[in-house]
């Protein structure tokens, strides 16, 4: 991250100052070279500027579990992507203290033609887990995901629940101080959600900083110390989870 770093006191894990993300949407989107060339000649470039995030500032203390709520398209994923360094903000600055987990959602990089075991190595590499650690922990990971019998089965034959359990089981092998999680409970079943919830509880106890974007308000309410409400790219509220959720629901 080469953004200008705001001053940080050691108790702060994440600080964002006036972060904005602007997308320029051409009225007629030119995707082919011919259209671009024609566009330059005719000088008819008109853009609509769209604020995916607008002047968002906040700070999150170390060890806090923060809920992130808002309607579809309110900027939740954009915010998490900026914080994780995947996309740069258009303006503003942010700083993170501690190791940030290199993913937002689960199962990214999984390939359906590869077996469970092969996928763990591949996904593990993407998450930054050394190959030998995966080899050493392979049985534990498969046991946690409850797919031990299927270790050599291709992922395309797995149910979507099995895939997300596998992804979750591997995710908890990563050693990060800050976790930015985007709708990770969207596909779990009734057994898996409490199981993974217990892990997140353990994370909270271990003092990790967590930002959890979800539409599952009950989950946010029971888990998060504080909650952020985004509305059309603006930070509408940030504070006590109950109050923020009440405000969101009232809308």
């Amino acid at each position: 991250m080469n953004e200008k770093r705001p001053n940080m006191n050691p108790e702060i894990a994440i600080r964002a100052e006036h972060v904005s993300k602007v997308y320029k949407i051409p009225h007629e989107r030119r995707v082919t070279l011919f259209e671009t060339l024609a566009g330059y000649v005719m000088r008819k470039v008109s853009y609509e500027t769209f604020f995916a995030l607008e002047d968002v500032s906040f700070s999150i203390a170390k060890g806090e579990a923060i809920g992130l709520i808002g309607k579809n398209g309110s900027g939740k994923t954009t915010l998490l992507k900026i914080l994780s360094g995947m996309i740069p903000p258009t303006s503003g600055s942010f700083a993170m203290r501690g190791k940030v987990a290199p993913f937002l959602s689960l199962g990214v990089g999984f390939h359906h033609e590869l077996t469970a075991e092969e996928n763990l190595y591949l996904y593990g590499a993407i998450l930054g887990i050394p190959r030998r650690d995966i080899t050493r922990r392979m049985s534990d990971i498969l046991r946690f995901a409850d797919v031990e019998r299927f270790r050599n089965m291709k992922l395309k034959n797995f149910s979507s629940g099995m895939v997300s359990r596998l992804a979750f089981a591997l995710m908890i092998e990563t050693d990060s101080d800050i976790l930015l999680l985007d709708e990770i409970f969207a596909v779990g079943d009734k057994d898996f959600i409490p199981q993974s919830f217990a892990v997140l509880e353990a994370y909270k106890k271990a003092g990790k900083t967590i930002v959890l974007a979800s539409h599952n308000l009950a989950l946010i309410e029971s888990y998060c110390h504080k909650t952020m409400l985004l509305s059309e790219g603006k930070l509408e509220a940030f504070g006590n989870t109950k109050d923020v959720i009440a405000r969101y629901v009232a809308h």
Binding site: H111, E113, L114, E118, L122, G124, A125, R131
Partner: peptide, 17 residues
């Protein structure tokens, strides 16, 4: 080192596939 591991796993995975 982490990137080297990603390159190894991705290219080897593609080769197998």
């Amino acid at each position: 080192k982490h990137y080297a591991a990603i390159i190894r796993e991705l290219s080897w995975g593609d080769f197998k596939l």
